[in-house]
Each structure stands twice: as C-alpha cells, then as structure tokens.
Design a protein around this nucleic acid. Sequence first.
DNA 1: AAAATATATGAATACATGTTCATGTATTGA
DNA 2: TCAATACATGAACATGTATTCATATATTTT
Lengths: 96, 96
Amino acid sequence: MEQEETRQQFEEAAYLLKAVANETRLGIIMQLSKKEEKSVTELMEDMQCEQSLLSHHLTDMRAKGILNCRKSGKNCFYSIRNKQVLQLLHCLFQQN
Amino acid sequence: MEQEETRQQFEEAAYLLKAVANETRLGIIMQLSKKEEKSVTELMEDMQCEQSLLSHHLTDMRAKGILNCRKSGKNCFYSIRNKQVLQLLHCLFQQN
DNA sequence: AAAATATATGAATACATGTTCATGTATTGA
DNA sequence: TCAATACATGAACATGTATTCATATATTTT
C-alpha cells in the first residue's frame, strides 16, 4: 500500500521531469521565471527559437499544466502555473 | 557569449533531467539515497523490477555518470555518484 | 475588405527511449 | 568440473519526442 503510494509519486515526478527535460523548455521556464509573463514573440526573441517549435513546446507544457496562457488581442502571454518547476530550476542552477 | 553559456547549461541540465526522468530510475535513486550502496539483487527485491530491465537502467545511469558500481564477487554494488540527483530528489519529494 | 501580425495546428520525419526475451559471462560452491 | 548465482548484453519492437514545413485561424491595421 505504502509501496504503491510511492510508485505513484515516482510516476508523477517522472511525468513532471519528462515534461521539462529539454533545452528549449528549460529556456522557456527560465525566461518566465524572470518576468512572470511573456508573449510568444518576446520568448522567440529572448531565446533563439523558431516560432513553430516554440509554439509546440508552449502548447504541450500548457496541456500538461506547467504553463498558463492569457490571450490579449493578437498576443498570447504565457506564465508559469506549476510552481514546482521553479524549485526544480533553482535546484538545477543554484550552484555556479 | 553569455547567451551561449546558458544554452550549454540548459543542455547539461536537460541531459541530467532526461537521465533521471523515469519511474524506475527515480526508484533506484530513492533506494540508493537511503542506503548508500545496494546490489542489483537487493534493488530488484526492494523495487519490483525485472532483472534485465533494472540492469539496463543501472548500466545507462552508470554510463551517464549518475551511478557508481563496485564489483565484489558475484555482486555489483551500486551507489550514487552525481550528488546533484539527490538534491533533485529532495526537491521533488520534499513537500507532503 | 485586404493585408499584416501573432500564434496554433497537423503531417511527416528522424531519432530516442523503455521494455522484453534470449543468451552471454564471471564467480562461487558442491 | 558442473551447476547455480548474479549480473550484463544485444536484438527486436513499440512508443514517445523533437523538429521542420506548410498551412490555418484570429485579431488588428490600413
């Protein structure tokens, strides 16, 4: 029973890690950790990333509950929804 | 230049995350975070994992510098080499 | 209404990953 | 020396992921 609980916790943790284990996605999260909200175009400029690729990653991370999206006119402003990824980011980049 | 540096940091971080973003691998790391060293058989029993699958994961993580392996007679004792994964684990499982 | 802008979507492809099965190898004990 | 134990390896397969390209949609501007 307790075994099963941890197994599920591992599944959830693995799910989160997989959702984030990518150079571009880490870049997105890093950007959003600095500014709270950014449009796709802003993200495109900050990172060096093609529109379509960026959009795919954003859509996926949104579907997985990691990001939020707020539409406003022609723009889409993304922000971090799952705050745990911020801790992860901090953990990954704290030393040096 | 500074851009490039962070890009490489993201690549490295993504590499580490990918190497760990799996239920079985997280389980292995959790076990080894509790006991310092465990043989493959011990790990097999603690987790519920087939020998061959476990061995593949162990071999891979060793190849990626995450685990250490010490042979002693018929046994192979694995331990954690990359201490950063311990921080990650802690970060993932600290709350609740 | 037409053109431009911002973003999303879907198909296609290439590549990586997880898993199983069968088999190999090294070490120990009978 | 033979069998048993502990572990690794490789092939095969299915599935997942990243990327690119072409195109669609919605909004704004002209």
